[in-house]
Design a protein around this nucleic acid. Structure first.
Lengths: 152, 152
DNA sequence: TTTATTGCAAAGCTTTTGCAGGATA
DNA sequence: TATCCTGCAAAAGCTTTGCAATAAA
């Protein structure tokens, strides 16, 4: 299993190492984003964090996500128009996204690192991040779709 | 060079094959999107198409892009928040995007097809499309950035 | 002639911004 | 204590939608 859980201490020093302050809002947001496998969007993070920090604002969530991107602790996944989701796994990997239910699954592939290096060399490009998305249907939604077709 | 130019006749039959009408606006939009290597966004396509079709609307551009996606003639690239760009190459490939100047370059890689198949098999997923983006700096912007650093 | 499409304007949404009050180091 | 951060509300920006007029088949 790919896992990116981090302790509060690690999170706090990550913030401070680049001059950011480790506020309670930021730590709470990190707990949800960095330890989650559900690839939440900003609204979802906001809803979750409000359960423990009722006064937190959506603006703070967005600002914190920007900091986490800068610290390279999360990868932004632009899943579709107007929907950014966040993945705590920042090493090259595949994100399989179901067009029907929206579930996002991480899949490792050891070849991706070399593929990126080769492309960068060929194009004389200096890579700093990536987003590898495969769109389609998860097995559950595929089954639902197939059975719906049989009914017709 | 990767090339996806298509004749008007091909475009017209692609529309009609699925019951869409081949209007002059749609054909003009296709000429710009399907024969371009610049990965334009909707506004850019609108600006270009208006040179020959001054009355075309941005809404029509968006509606046509949705049809082209449905026909699998273009791939939508969600480059960053609020910026969708369009690529006429729909087979799996890499898009190298410069964070500084925004240029998008296509790079082929024959391994991607198998990588997608393997991930799909492992996750029991039915793939229908993909978007493989590498973010970073193109060689020109890298050089500019390096020289700016030297000055300091 | 029927049906789909256009173009306009308004609405919708996510995300960003400005700023006064407040927390952190 | 100086600086950064929060939360609010407004603004911004891209995209979508509703509808009457128009064009395609």
């Amino acid at each position: 299993m790919m896992n990116s859980s981090r302790s509060d201490a690690e999170i706090i020093s990550a913030f401070r190492s680049k001059g950011f302050k480790a506020t309670s809002q930021r730590i709470a947001i990190c707990r949800h984003v960095l330890c989650s496998e559900e690839h939440p969007n900003a609204q979802r993070i906001y809803d979750e964090v409000r359960r423990t920090h009722p006064t937190v604002s959506l603006a703070t969530v967005y600002k914190t996500l920007a900091v986490l991107k800068e610290l390279n602790l999360i990868q932004e996944l632009l899943v579709k128009q107007g929907e950014a989701r966040y993945d705590p796994i920042v090493v090259p990997h595949l994100n399989l996204i179901c067009n029907r239910c929206g579930v996002v699954r991480d899949v490792k592939d050891g070849n991706l690192k070399i593929i990126i290096e080769n492309a960068a060399k060929l194009a004389r490009f200096s890579p700093s991040g990536q987003s590898f998305i495969i769109y389609g249907l998860c097995n559950i939604c595929k089954a639902i779709k197939d059975s719906a077709r049989d009914v017709k």
